[in-house]
Design a protein around this nucleic acid. Structure first.
Lengths: 109, 109
DNA sequence: TTTGATTATCGTATTATTACGATATAAGTT
DNA sequence: AACTTATATCGTAATAATACGATAATCAAA
């Protein structure tokens, strides 16, 4: 994609961008909704609910794990996935703050 | 990127993903922060504040406009950009709801 | 009408993302 | 040890995103 120059932005800006990426694909939104609502944590359950190949789901789970918003507990041959509450609250706070920075004032357009 | 199968997801899931994309790049986060805090709407001002080429900033602005979270009023040779309050509130609501779906309960991991 | 100022678009190189089949891995079970 | 089950990773094709220089477009002013 062309080199995103992460070094020229603040840590906060890069973190927001990363957290937003968790929600920036409908499949990941679906996964997060499932994990947030139920506690259906097993990967196979997610594969059943999503019309995507097992490899694709696993790849999305890996990305969500990288961001930190989900965690997995290995219990072979299964892996139990769930929301990481700490990061979930971090995201809630980060986005909440971001939206609150909007100053309602007369704009030029 | 491989064809994202938008048709297999709900409208809501696709909308969340799209709104998240607005924040999924640090440059766009920076632009949104600037527009939300100040009312420095002119494209040139943004180019001055960001260490990116004018063409790159314009491209990010186009993407934000596509999502709808910003709007631009043409006033040649300038364009005045600002937050679209309606979509901003939509995003606040959509993410707020998403985070509230988390059911705090005993998880398996 | 030409110039100047500002922004958009084009062209394009580079890199990231998405998807899926195939295969590897891991640990319990027989 | 061989088999089964569930998940991860590899390989790879297709496509989207990022960045920037160059150029076009737009309208006011000279």
């Amino acid at each position: 994609m062309g080199v995103t120059k992460t070094e020229i932005f603040t840590d906060e800006q890069n973190r927001i961008a990363d957290l937003a990426k968790a929600f920036a694909h409908p499949a990941r939104v679906a996964i997060l909704q499932l994990l947030a609502q139920k506690k259906a944590c097993v990967c196979g359950d997610l594969v059943d609910e999503l019309p995507l190949a097992q490899a694709t789901v696993s790849q999305h789970l890996k990305e969500l794990k990288r961001i930190g918003i989900i965690q997995g507990e290995i219990n072979p041959p299964r892996v139990c996935y769930c929301i990481n509450e700490t990061v979930w609250e971090e995201a809630r706070h980060v986005f909440g703050s971001a939206f609150d920075t909007y100053v309602a004032t007369t704009r030029c357009c």
